[in-house]
Amino acid sequence: MRYIRPLSIEDAVGELAKAVGPAAILAGGSDLLVRMKGGFVEPELIVDIKRIGGFSDITETADGFRIGAAVPCAVLGEHAALKKAWPGVVEAAKLIGSKQVQGRCTITGNLCNASPAADSVPALVAAGAKAVVAGPSGKRTIAVETVPTGPGRTSLAKGEIIEAILLDKRPAHAGDAYLRFIPRTEMDIAVVSAGINLTLDDKGIIKTARVALGAAAPTVLLVEEAAEALIGRTLDDGTLERLAKICSGACRPIDDKRGTIEFRRKVAGVLAQRVAATAYKRAGGK
């Protein structure tokens, strides 16, 4: 086993591309080290990306925000402008683990770990976030929802690294929110979750909407039908009821140690309603 700490993205990509055995990218390590401890993975090569230039920065650009792949979630929560623009993404990121885990974990790691229950992913998907991918054959920018392809699997090719996550600049009357259901108050993995991003017109009518559900299917679900049910309306009781019904219906959950199918279905709808209300309020709706 080798541990390296490249200083440039080129070196990192190069080392990963030429690695013979299994290689792992180390960001915050809060998934990777747990899996190594359990003997589920035994990488030959560990590439620590935290000292690559720019990887630990959040930058505000003309188009929005660029969040370096090694930025720990605690830092997201300390970034006032990001929190103001994307409160739902930040609240989702801040739900991951404990204070201790927050000091390390990244949203990129959360995305690439490809757990159906990842907290920041539904929020990122609802936000329409993009991932900048660097690899042996150059760079590409892709929608975050295309990264996870199944539990523990991603669309990234050998040698590819996500450099940063991009979030758009916010127009007026925009708001997003995220909620998850956990049995405890902290330190739990989502049983089911929902992230919603809305923009409104001046009168409070929903102009655009994205609704994403977590832990409801093998990968995060972007529920177009739910978005359609919101667009062109305010959040009246009928709309909320329809939203819940569509979200519950869209779930394809499983029975497991964290919850049952019925429970996830039912609660997905309840959460969607509550999240929509928060996002709507944040967008300035009344």
């Binding site: 541990y3 390590g29 809060s30 747990v34 620590d48 605690a74 201790q100």
Partner: peptide
Amino acid sequence: SVIVDGRLVCSCLVLGAE
């Protein structure tokens, strides 16, 4: 728990090399 560069972390989730 330990503090690394001002951040609270679990030392079981940090590599010694880091």
